[in-house]
Lab assay of single mutants.
Amino acid sequence: YETDHQDYCEVCQQGGEIILCDTCPRAYHLVCLDPELDRAPEGKWSCPHCEKE
């Protein structure tokens, strides 16, 4: 299903190369994640907010 994702990072509120959560509309820079990621994850990815739930 399609979600309207943010076009900015949930953490720093800036645009650029962001990865999109497959569960919610949030988006993140790899370096803004904690722990940060070296590269975009393959397959489905859930953001830290969704992982907690």
Score class of each variant (00 low, 15 high):
G16Y: 12
G43Y: 05
I19N: 14
R26F: 04
C47E: 00
Y1G: 15
E10T: 14
C50S: 02
D7G: 10
P35G: 10
C47D: 02
E53L: 04
I18A: 12
T23I: 07
E36F: 10
C24E: 00
D7I: 10
G16I: 13
L33H: 08
C21K: 01
K44H: 12
C9L: 01
Q14T: 10
Y1M: 15
K44V: 03
L33F: 03
Y28F: 08
E53F: 08
G15H: 15
L33R: 03
E51T: 08
D4E: 11
T3S: 12
A27E: 01
E17P: 02
H5V: 14
T23C: 06
W45F: 14
H5F: 07
V11I: 14
D34I: 04
C12E: 01
L37W: 05
D22R: 13
Q13M: 13
V11S: 15
C32R: 00
E10N: 15
C50R: 02
Y28V: 05
D34N: 07
C50P: 03
H49R: 08
H5P: 10
L30I: 05
L33M: 08
L20W: 06
C47F: 03
T23V: 07
Q6A: 06
L30Y: 13
D4F: 10
H5I: 14
E10W: 13
L20F: 12
P35E: 05
T3G: 14
Y1V: 14
R26N: 07
L30V: 11
H5N: 15
C50Q: 02
A40Q: 14
S46V: 09
L37S: 05
I19K: 14
P48C: 06
P35R: 08
H5K: 15
C24D: 01
T23W: 02
Y28A: 13
C24S: 02
Y28C: 07
Q13K: 10
L33N: 04
L37A: 13
E53I: 04
T3P: 09
C21A: 01
I19D: 05
G16M: 06
D7F: 04
P25N: 06
L30H: 10
C32L: 00
L37E: 01
E10M: 05
D22C: 06
L30N: 07
C32W: 02
L30A: 13
E36M: 11
C47N: 00
H29I: 00
E36Q: 07
E36T: 07
C47H: 00
H5W: 07
Q13P: 01
G43K: 13
P25L: 04
H5Y: 09
L20Q: 08
P25H: 05
E42N: 14
H49T: 11
E10G: 08
K44Q: 12
W45D: 03
I18L: 11
V11Y: 13
P35M: 09
E42D: 03
V11D: 14
T23F: 11
P48Y: 03
Q14W: 03
G43H: 09
K52S: 12
R39H: 05
S46I: 13
I19E: 13
D4Y: 08
P35I: 05
C50K: 00
Y8L: 15
Y1K: 15
C50T: 03
D7N: 12
R26L: 14
Q14H: 07
K44W: 02
D38Y: 02
P25T: 12
C32G: 02
K52N: 11
L37D: 06
R39G: 09
P41Q: 10
P48S: 06
Y8K: 14
C24A: 01
E51M: 03
A40E: 14
C32E: 02
L37C: 08
W45S: 06
I19M: 15
H49K: 08
G43C: 04
R39S: 12
L30C: 13
Y28E: 03
E17W: 02
E17S: 09
D4I: 08
D4M: 15
Y1E: 14
H29A: 01
E53Q: 09
P25S: 09
H5T: 14
S46E: 09
E10V: 14
D22K: 10
Y28R: 05
Q13I: 06
D38G: 08
C21H: 01
D38N: 02
L37H: 11
C12P: 01
P48W: 04
E53W: 03
G15P: 03
V31Y: 05
T3N: 09
C9H: 01
H49D: 07
A40S: 06
S46W: 10
A40Y: 04
D7W: 01
L20N: 13
D34E: 11
Y8R: 15
C47M: 02
